[in-house]
């Protein structure tokens, strides 16, 4: 009993300590943003590696998720003769939830883990120390560009995931299962709201997820123990923690935007 309490206390202190360090790291990161504003090229270069290189996995996943939604939606709606609502079901599911959440989870697995590993390896090979000794601040040169690029990339990737998903749903519903094309698009047009579903659902959600995912990824790299095992653990933590936090934050945002 006492041992259990001790372990719980130790674990709580450990996580509080990490949260404190992550918060200090974030503040330091934000203080480096004005320097980055003078050299936007640094963030644009990172946008390629975290955004453009994530496109294949995002587009492929979006396509399959949309196709599955089309199939599942059809199988359920056909019993009620409501297959004309399939466009609405696919679009709302993707815009409000699946698009931003799945894009964030895929981002964590593809780009977040790569960010952590890259920064951890730079630390292990003394590249960050060398930068400091050359009077170059790694916060302005390494961490902030990656953090900002990730936040910019996230809503774009979520938007692409959602759009490709809708096309996947359309392909299955209209081309394969014979749902009326006009009904598919018109139902979608009449129910999907620009502010509620696109701005709140896709843009705001994914900016918040992007903030969280990149904060965790960059911090884990910065905080990694500079050994092969330490970097491996940090990379795993990035994927696991980002997934959990994104899902938790999604619940909070959903309650705020759509809650009663």
């Amino acid at each position: 009993m006492i041992d259990g309490l001790r372990r719980l206390g130790r674990s709580t202190l450990f996580w509080l300590n990490r949260l404190g360090r992550a918060t200090l790291f974030l503040l330091r990161l934000l203080s480096a943003l004005p320097t980055l504003a003078k050299r936007p090229g640094l963030a644009i270069r990172q946008l390629y590696s975290v955004g453009v290189l994530s496109l294949p996995i995002i587009a492929m996943s979006g396509l399959f998720v949309g196709m599955v939604l089309g199939l599942q939606g059809y199988a359920n709606l056909v019993d009620f003769g409501a297959t004309s609502s399939l466009g609405r079901v696919v679009a709302l599911s993707l815009a409000r939830e699946l698009g931003p959440v799945l894009a964030a989870l895929l981002y964590a697995a593809r780009a977040g883990s790569a960010l952590t590993a890259e920064i951890g390896l730079m630390k292990a090979t003394e590249q960050l120390s060398a930068m400091q000794m050359m009077a170059v601040d790694p916060f302005a040169r390494v961490y902030a560009p990656r953090f900002v690029a990730g936040i910019i990339a996230m809503p774009l990737l979520a938007g692409i995931f959602t759009a490709v998903g809708i096309l996947g749903g359309y392909f299955v519903a209209v081309q394969q299962l014979g749902v009326d094309s006009g009904a598919f698009w018109s139902q979608m047009q009449s129910t999907v709201k620009l502010f509620d579903d696109v701005i709140n659902g896709v843009v705001i959600n994914s900016v918040v997820f992007g903030w969280v995912a990149n904060w965790i990824a960059v911090f884990e790299g910065y905080d990694a123990i500079p050994t092969s095992e330490g970097i491996s653990l940090a990379t795993t933590r990035t994927v696991v923690n980002t997934s959990l936090v994104v899902l938790a934050v999604d619940f909070v945002l959903t309650a705020l935007f759509f809650g009663v």
Binding site: T125, E126, Q127, S129, A130, Q132, M133, M134, A135, V136
Partner: peptide
């Protein structure tokens, strides 16, 4: 002060994403 100091690290600590030329040009 560090602009007037320099350090050669044990591993060299070259930036792995830059060529030799760009590494030297970096500072």
């Amino acid at each position: 002060l560090r602009k007037r100091m320099s350090m050669l690290f044990q591993s060299g600590a070259l930036f792995t994403d830059l060529s030799v030329f760009d590494n030297v040009a970096f500072p």
